[in-house]
Design a protein around this nucleic acid. Structure first.
Lengths: 327, 327
DNA sequence: CTGCCGTTATGCATAGTTTGCATAGCGATT
DNA sequence: AATCGCTATGCAAACTATGCATAACGGCAG
C-alpha cells in the first residue's frame, strides 16, 4: 500500500470524477484508474461506486475516507516531527505558494533572506489558494506564501496558523492594447450597454475573487461585466488579457514586464486597484530549526525584505528550488 | 512513502542488523539498504545510526518507532474493517500458520470445511510462531493456525484472542536410519557418555522448544544432547535428521512419509512423545462475515474435522491458496 | 432503437523503478 | 597491515507504472 494511493483516493472523493482527479494529481486518467484499482485490491473492497455519475463512495469507501484522511495526516505529522528532530541538512524547507508568487516573488525574496547555505535546500509546491491551505494544514509544507488583505476572508487567520508580512503588491485591472497602445476594453466606455468581457478567478481561488468584489463595490455605477473565461491562476488570466479576450484583475508583480512593453495597460482609476500584502504563514507551534531561523530573521526585519522590484533588477539569484511534483 | 518501508523499519529495529532483517523480509541486503535509505530520505532524517554495531536508533528513529507501529496497525485495521464492510467476494480469508501446518495440514483441512465456493479465496502466510502472533495481532491475518498444549506457554491465550481446536498431532523424536533400517542415534545407548547430536528449535519458535522441555523433564536420567543445528522450521530439522546429522522432535504430520519409507524412525519410548493440539486462533471481536461462517461451522462440529490422516488418503483437494510474499 | 457523448477500464509498448550481484568503502579486531 | 563483517553503491536485468489508443459502458437525444 502506498501513501500516493491514499492521496489519490482523497482527490477522487473531492473531484467525484476520475478524469478530473487524475488531472489534479498530474497523471493520466488511465494511470489514475489503475491506482484506485490497486488500492481497492489491497483493501479487499470496492471504495468507489462507478455505476453512477458522478461516482460516489461505497459503504466501505464511506468508512475509509475519514480514517484515510487521518492516516495521511498522521503520516505527514510523523514525518515532520522526525524531520525536526533529525539532522539539519536532512530537512529541506517546504513551501507552498500561489503560482504567481512562486514564479515572480519567491526566487528573489528567498535569496534575499541570506539564510545559511545548508538551509537553502527547499521545495516549492505551487498551487491555488485552497491547495496552499491544504499543504499547510496537512503538514506537507512548512510555509505558505499567499496574498492577504485586512478585508479579505480571514481563512488562514481563523485557523491554527501565524503569519508575517513579507512583501506588498497591488491588484490592478488590465486590458490588452490595440496598435496605438490604447486599451482594447477601457473600463469607462461611452457605450456602457455593451458588457466588457471579463476574465475571472475560479471559486477555488476565492481569495482574489473576494478582493475584486471589494473593489467593484466601491463603484457607484456598477460595471457591466460578463465572464468569458475562468482560471485559478493569474498567469492564465494575464495571457488571455494579452491575447485580447477581456480584462482581468491581476497582481502587478506578474504583469510588470507586459506593462512596460505595452502588451497590457492598466485601466480604470486608482480606486479600481487595491494594495495587498504578501504574507508567509506557518502552523502555530511549528518547531523546525531552519524554519525557525527564517521566521526569526523576518521578525527582526520587522517590515520584511526589500519591496517588490523590477524583475530586470540585477539582484543576486540563488538556484531555484526543485519544483514538487515534476516527474 | 510505502507501507513496506514501515515494515522494513520495524524489522530492522527487531533484528538490529541489515543483513538479518533483509533475510527476514526475503530481499537482498542491498535492496533492504536502499529501502531504509528511501524511508529516511522521505522522512528527511536519519532513523538508523549505522556507526555502531549492532545498529541503533537515532533520536528521530526513537520517535518514529512507536508511531510507525501504530500507523501500521491502523492501516491494517482500516483495511480489515473496510474489507468486512465490502463485498463478499472481495474479502479473502487470510491465514497465518506454522510452516508445517501450512504445508501438511491446512490444504486438506481447509478443503474439508466445505465452505461456500466464494469464500474459498484465501491467502496463507507461513511463518514461525512469533510471526503468526504478529500477523494476528497486527490484523494482517484473520486466523492463525498453530500447535498448542495445555502445558505450553499460553501466549495466545493470554492475549485478546479466542480459539477452537481443529485437529491433533503428536510431537515425536526421530532419527535418520542406517542401511539396515536401524536408527543412527538410538535414544538409549550403551555408551551414554557420547552426546547425541541434537537438532533444536530456535528461540523464536519458542513454542515447540518449550514442549520438548516438558518431554525431557519426564526422564529420570537426563539425555546427553548437544545442539548441532537450529532452525525455527520443523521441515528444516526433518531434512537434517534424514541426512543423518542428529535427532529432532518433530510433529508426526510432517514425517509421516519418511517414517513409512524408512528414511526416519521414531526413537525413544512413548513417554518421549507428546500429543499436541492444532488450534485456530482469531482476535476477539472479529467480525468478518466469511470468517464467521468458518468459525461457526467449527463450533458446530465441536470436535473439529476428521483427525490427521495419511497424506495418501484420497480426499478431494481444493486449489492451494496463493502463498503471501512470493515475488 | 440507433448514434453520439462522456465516462472508466484495459491492451500494449515504453519509461521508470526496484532488485540482486558484485564489490567498494568502512570500522573493528588481530 | 591484513582480515573480517558489516553497510552502501555501480550496473545490468527484472519488474512495475505509465501514457496512448481505444474498448466497454451507460445515459441521453433524436
Amino acid at each position: 500500500m502506498e501513501l500516493v494511493w491514499l492521496e489519490d483516493f482523497l482527490e477522487i472523493v473531492a473531484a467525484r470524477n476520475f478524469s478530473t482527479a487524475a488531472a489534479a494529481r498530474n497523471i493520466s486518467q488511465s494511470a489514475f484508474s489503475r491506482r484506485i484499482k490497486s488500492l481497492e485490491t489491497w483493501v479487499g473492497a470496492d471504495l468507489i461506486d462507478r455505476s453512477t455519475y458522478p461516482v460516489r463512495l461505497t459503504a466501505a469507501g464511506e468508512m475509509f475516507l475519514p480514517r484515510a484522511q487521518e492516516l495521511a495526516r498522521d503520516i505527514y505529522r510523523l514525518r515532520t516531527d522526525c524531520r525536526n528532530l533529525g539532522g539539519t541538512t536532512q530537512a529541506p524547507l517546504n513551501f507552498a505558494a500561489l503560482h504567481t508568487l512562486a514564479i515572480y516573488f519567491f526566487p528573489e525574496w528567498f535569496g534575499s533572506l541570506g539564510t545559511p547555505a545548508q538551509a537553502q535546500r527547499s521545495s516549492m509546491h505551487a498551487g491555488d489558494f485552497l491547495e496552499c491551505i491544504e499543504q499547510l494544514s496537512l503538514g506537507k509544507s512548512d510555509f505558505a506564501l499567499v496574498y492577504d488583505h485586512p478585508q479579505g476572508l480571514p481563512v488562514l487567520e481563523a485557523g491554527p496558523f501565524e503569519s508575517q508580512k513579507v512583501g506588498t503588491d497591488r491588484l490592478i485591472p488590465v486590458s490588452g492594447t490595440d496598435a496605438a497602445g490604447q486599451p482594447l476594453y477601457p473600463m469607462d466606455r461611452p457605450d456602457s450597454d455593451t458588457p466588457i468581457p471579463y476574465l475571472a478567478y475560479t471559486w477555488n481561488d476565492g481569495y482574489l475573487g473576494k478582493l475584486i468584489g471589494l473593489i467593484l463595490s466601491r463603484r457607484k455605477k456598477p460595471l457591466n461585466l460578463t465572464t468569458v473565461y475562468q482560471s485559478s491562476m493569474a498567469e492564465g488570466l494575464k495571457q488571455m488579457a494579452v491575447a485580447g479576450h477581456g480584462i482581468a484583475w491581476v497582481p502587478r508583480i506578474c504583469v510588470q514586464g507586459e506593462l512596460e512593453r505595452g502588451a497590457l495597460v492598466q485601466i480604470g482609476d486608482p480606486a479600481m486597484a487595491l494594495d495587498i500584502e504578501i504574507r508567509l504563514f506557518r502552523r502555530s507551534g511549528y518547531r523546525g530549526r531552519e524554519g525557525e531561523e527564517v521566521w526569526a530573521r523576518l521578525a527582526d526585519a520587522n517590515a520584511g525584505p526589500p519591496p517588490v522590484t523590477d524583475s530586470s533588477s540585477p539582484l543576486p539569484r540563488p538556484a531555484l528550488p526543485s519544483v514538487a511534483g515534476s516527474r
